[in-house]
């Protein structure tokens, strides 16, 4: 059944609705676990849209296998999704920096507080992101150091390629995932693909992982596929490659392929002079798990992240 989590009127003849699709087992025991799948906080991230569709389709096709409650929230920022805008139109702050929200705050803070109220009490939550329009990411779960002991065992079931345990920084305390983890709702922040696109293979991989996790948690009884064993790494093993010149980045490597120290990764070129402004070589052996998609770069623009060994 489809429910409205929160609604707020817009100035002219329209109401903003944040909706969820609730799926319940045929017979409720009273002790059924509840899983929330949320996505669309950033309006330019679309991979989660296909995941929501596929989850609902597969569950409805075998409703007899559902043993828990699954709430699917495809669009926490419907205006952003509808207008190809990462943030919330007419609002300054990133929606994923205002949780837990405030019932007496601005309209967006009010909405954030109602979303938290609705998810609170769930047994598990998966918050699906898809990078941005600039970078392509392999399916990965990002976990703060403090949540790692509780969340890594769950993330291992999710069929991702990589689990990145990162240091805790204050500004991230206002994300949805951090807020829910503090409220005792174990929440996995999942990243994959690239903004404004759907990478079907990645979505299918993650959907298979969610069913595997649901089975592990007693929410699903149907057949599930085997999951891959992800690499688990900390900040120390991730190397950032940033542009040192402004121009057009042309890659010479492929995403999520092995790379050798000194291997050519790509060039930043100047279309006006016909010159290569910066030739970029890998500083280490490893695998490129993040790669620049959008070619125009400024000094500092992220080109790639490499999961690897010691740098030169």
């Amino acid at each position: 059944m489809i429910k409205t989590v929160v609604a707020s009127a817009l100035p002219v003849d329209e109401v903003l609705h944040i909706k969820k699709h609730r799926m319940e087992p045929i017979s409720m025991s009273g002790e059924n676990k509840r899983l929330c799948i949320v996505t669309g906080i950033h309006g330019d991230e679309l991979e989660g849209q296909y995941v929501c569709y596929e989850m609902i389709k597969r569950i409805n096709a075998h409703k007899e296998n559902l043993k828990g409650i699954v709430d699917v929230y495809p669009a926490l920022n419907p205006l952003g999704l509808d207008t190809i805008t990462r943030g919330i139109p007419k609002f300054d702050l990133d929606m994923n920096r205002i949780f837990p929200g405030n019932e007496n705050g601005s309209m967006v803070e009010y909405i954030a507080s109602k979303i938290i109220d609705d998810i609170t009490g769930a047994d598990l939550c998966i918050d699906i992101h898809s990078s941005n329009i600039y970078l392509k990411e392999i399916p990965q779960v990002r976990i703060s150091e403090e949540s790692a002991p509780q969340l890594i065992p769950l993330a291992l079931k999710l069929n991702v390629d990589f689990i990145w345990v990162h240091s805790s920084i204050t500004v991230l305390e206002s994300t949805l995932a951090h807020t829910l983890n503090m409220l005792k709702v174990p929440t996995l922040a999942l990243e994959m693909g690239v903004g404004m696109r759907i990478t079907r293979d990645y979505c299918e991989q993650v959907v298979n992982g969610i069913f595997h996790l649901m089975k592990d948690q007693g929410i699903w009884e149907g057949e599930t596929t085997e999951v891959r064993a992800p690499i688990i790494s900390t900040d120390g093993k991730v190397h950032f490659i940033n542009a040192e010149a402004s121009g057009i980045f042309v890659p010479a490597i492929q995403h999520w392929k092995e790379i050798k120290i000194g291997q050519h990764m790509g060039d930043i070129i100047d279309p006006l002079t016909g010159c290569v402004i910066q030739s970029i070589d890998s500083p280490c052996d490893g695998a490129v798990f993040t790669l620049r998609e959008y070619p125009v770069v400024y000094e500092g623009s992220l080109i790639a992240r490499i999961l690897g060994g010691d740098c030169i």
Partner: peptide, 26 residues
């Protein structure tokens, strides 16, 4: 535009900054 033209980030949410980081962090 209110924020940084190429990636819409807010310079006043980037302090103390990072000289090897992204453009507005730099």
């Amino acid at each position: 535009k209110r924020f940084w033209p190429s990636d819409n980030t807010d310079i006043n949410r980037m302090f103390p900054g990072y000289e090897y980081g992204e453009t507005t962090q730099r």
